Amino acid sequence: MLESTTVLVNLQVHGYSSQPRFTQTNTDLQLTVTEGVQIGRDLFFWKFNNSKNIIRLNGDKVNRFHYQNRVEFFNQNLSLILKNVQLSDSGIYTAAVSRETDVILSTHDVRVQGAEEVCTQETESERSWCLVKTVVFSVGLLLMVSSVITVHVLDWTRKKNN
Results as ranks from 00 to 15, higher is better:
116 E>L: 12
126 E>F: 06
140 G>M: 03
94 T>V: 15
6 T>E: 15
32 T>M: 03
132 V>T: 07
145 V>P: 00
107 T>A: 06
161 N>G: 05
145 V>Y: 05
145 V>M: 13
8 L>H: 09
47 K>Q: 05
143 L>W: 11
9 V>R: 15
88 S>D: 11
155 D>Y: 15
18 S>Q: 10
103 V>R: 03
141 L>K: 11
28 D>E: 07
145 V>K: 04
101 T>R: 14
114 G>V: 10
25 T>P: 01
157 T>R: 13
14 H>Y: 06
107 T>I: 07
162 N>F: 08
7 V>D: 06
51 S>K: 08
101 T>F: 04
1 M>S: 11
15 G>T: 02
25 T>R: 04
60 D>Q: 10
127 R>Q: 11
17 S>M: 09
97 V>T: 14
52 K>T: 04
140 G>H: 04
100 E>M: 03
23 T>M: 12
59 G>K: 04
86 Q>V: 11
19 Q>H: 06
160 K>C: 09
88 S>M: 07
63 N>M: 09
135 V>I: 15
33 V>I: 01
24 Q>T: 12
105 L>G: 08
150 T>V: 07
31 L>R: 00
142 L>K: 10
145 V>A: 15
45 F>P: 00
31 L>S: 01
139 V>Q: 05
69 N>C: 01
131 L>G: 02
50 N>I: 01
78 L>R: 02
135 V>Y: 14
60 D>N: 13
98 S>I: 05
109 D>A: 04
12 Q>T: 14
126 E>H: 10
85 V>H: 02
128 S>A: 14
14 H>T: 08
61 K>T: 11
113 Q>S: 12
29 L>S: 03
56 R>E: 15
62 V>N: 01
95 A>P: 01
113 Q>R: 15
154 L>K: 14
41 R>G: 04
19 Q>G: 03
15 G>E: 01
103 V>N: 06
68 Q>Y: 13
